[in-house]
Write a protein that binds this DNA or RNA. Structure first.
Lengths: 370, 370
DNA sequence: GTGAAAGCGCTAACAC
DNA sequence: GTGTTAGCGCTTTCAC
């Protein structure tokens, strides 16, 4: 073990370089370099031998040298951006987690940085080029968070591999983007409830400041019209969940659902769609409190399909948000740009399918109990 | 704006180097380099001028060149490790999020990588040096997850700046570590309930495979003995929450709490401590179902103090786990090693104070309702 | 397909 | 405190 340890640490104090391999293979270092860059499928016998030697000797390329020479790193940077918040919200952080995992699965390297311009930014001002880009620490970026159109243009002006991710509007044609089709998910949810026989469906979402909430509302209204369901303001419930410092989504879901359940029969919904799973869990607690059975007396649909949806009793039907797929796509788009490959499709939309579990059923016949 | 854009992208295509500054300041490049490395507080007038010029010209050091020359990057790597799981759990990912945020706040760069040896690792086998280290992409590492003692020794043998983080046992003296004092938090929770007058306190935690759960149980048992409370196996409830694929913590909390509430008076707890907040939320739902008021008829304490604890109704008293502080400390320890500063304290323990909110009260007088 | 040679931008050892 | 010099490990011209 001592010997092995010595060997281990010598891997770091005296790492194998391209020159070492060249000497041993009796070729010029540049040949080794070319071999490493070539397609490993089609190698001449000589190159095959070089590659094998490199493996034997435990060669790992020094990425700093490569990045210095090339002028660009192969690490991808992720900018978590917020126009409104001084501190990143937990959803932004969880977005970052998904990106990290997607990166690891695809053998890509990812550095995250927060990019807060607070309230200082005006459309005239230039966005500063992010530090991690100027340092040449990263060769491309993924941008998540709240961006507006002039900012997209500025990202383009940096002329670096980039991809914006999330709820998007007016992305320039030449800037890569990966969005989430939350309208589709909402539509599917309403359609499902309508098909089960529900006519009185409530929607509980956050304020209209966030594009996501606006899109949810629009899709909801479009679907209720299309399926000829009860409409109007009384079915739209605004929950105060947008301020990360003070928001209490569980309590909001609980209290607002209690209010809905306590309405008179006519205006009492038989199904509720929640803008996130946490609100829905609060709703579940309210149903338990009023002894209303889910799903036989009340159908519930969550949004995001988090561990809460799978873990609850009953398990929640929820609109799935596939952050993993979104991030994987975004990372690939940036990687292709870094490698100068051509991109078949610059803009992608990740589907949000409705995951059907146990929290929905046809409405109770006759007057629902109260 | 066109002009500015040109300026922006030229920042990247023709970045200012140390040589440019040297030429303009009519000094040797090495003088500029030394100036950048010096303490900005105490500079000679000449150096002060150099620094100002650098700022004017928009100089950003090329980290690749610096890392190549120095032989080590200033980026910190984070290894998310798991002995048991093929895929990182959400708690591991959230750990990673906290680390990213702590890094951003301290102007440190962090790359995350997952390090899975699955079930293959044996004490005899050498751990491979992580890829991000061998590539020289990072100059030091933070290791989180489940580690055993022989693995600590191997990390030491890599002879790189390192710090292990999390629930720890038998860390070698010379390896930096930051732990979480979950025993202390559990002790405090029991003490608080005992002081309120509770004698029948149940603990609902995961299986004994995880060090954290073992420590929670030990601290619980020690405290119940010390405060002379009802003891024995009937107060320890095992929840199945350890398998990330199948775990349904909310449902577990719900069903197991129902069982507790349905016990006969003697063996029915007046307070329940949960191993995590999600279980506790399930408990809250069970209480609502049985129309048991929290806190007047049942006191509840969660663990981790997540957004669920703050957001629920009533708000949960919870044992706080300060991942942010833990990660900040760990990052600092690695940074100090990278910078060759001497470290006052190699081992730290982050406190887990009990955050008192609304879910605890003295037990109901007489027989609790059922 | 290969070898020769240059150099990416920076830091550190050395002499003064 | 400064200038000189060398070189970290790699990639990419160029000529053959």
């Amino acid at each position: 073990m001592n010997e092995m340890n010595a060997d281990m640490s010598s891997q770091l104090s005296n790492p194998v370089t391209i020159d070492d391999i060249a000497k041993r293979a009796k070729v010029h270092p540049s040949t080794v370099s070319r071999t490493m860059a070539a397609d490993p499928e089609k190698l001449t016998p000589r190159r095959r031998k070089i590659l094998e030697m490199a493996r034997e000797m435990g060669y790992t390329p020094n990425v700093n040298a490569a990045a210095l020479r090339r002028g660009a790193s192969d690490t991808i940077g992720m900018l978590v951006v917020s126009t409104f918040l001084q501190y990143p919200t937990s959803s932004q952080l969880s977005t970052a987690s998904f990106a990290m995992r997607a990166a690891a699965e695809n053998a890509l390297r990812l550095i995250t940085d927060f990019y807060n311009w607070g309230t200082q930014w005006t459309p005239d001002a230039d966005l500063p080029i992010p530090q991690i880009v100027r340092e040449r620490r990263v060769g491309g970026i993924i941008a998540t968070g709240t961006w507006a159109q002039p900012q997209f243009d500025q990202i383009l002006s940096w002329k670096i591999p980039a991809c914006v991710v999330g709820q998007l509007k007016n992305v320039p044609e030449s800037l890569c983007s990966v969005g989430m089709n939350i309208r589709g998910g909402m539509y599917e949810a309403v359609q499902y409830l309508a098909a089960l026989g529900h006519r009185k469906i409530a929607l509980m979402i956050g304020g209209p400041k966030h594009i996501a909430h606006v899109q949810q509302q629009q899709a909801f209204e479009q679907a209720t019209r299309e399926f000829n369901l009860a409409g109007g303001e009384q079915w739209l419930i605004r929950a105060d969940i947008d301020s990360p410092k003070t928001a209490r989504p569980l309590a909001e879901g609980y209290h607002l659902t209690l209010q809905l359940l306590d309405r008179s029969t006519d205006s009492r919904p038989t199904a509720i769609i929640y803008g996130n799973d946490t609100l829905a869990i609060g709703g579940l607690q309210a149903a338990a409190k009023r002894d209303v059975d889910v799903p036989s007396e009340l159908s519930i649909i969550g949004t995001s399909d988090t561990f809460l949806a799978v873990g609850s009793e009953p398990q929640l039907t929820s609109i799935h948000e596939d952050h993993h797929q979104m991030m994987t796509a975004a990372l690939r788009l940036v990687e292709m740009q870094i490698r100068n490959q051509n991109i078949p499709q610059r803009h992608m939309l990740v589907d949000c399918p409705l995951i059907k579990r146990q929290s929905c059923a046809p409405p109770a016949p006759g007057t629902p109990g109260s």
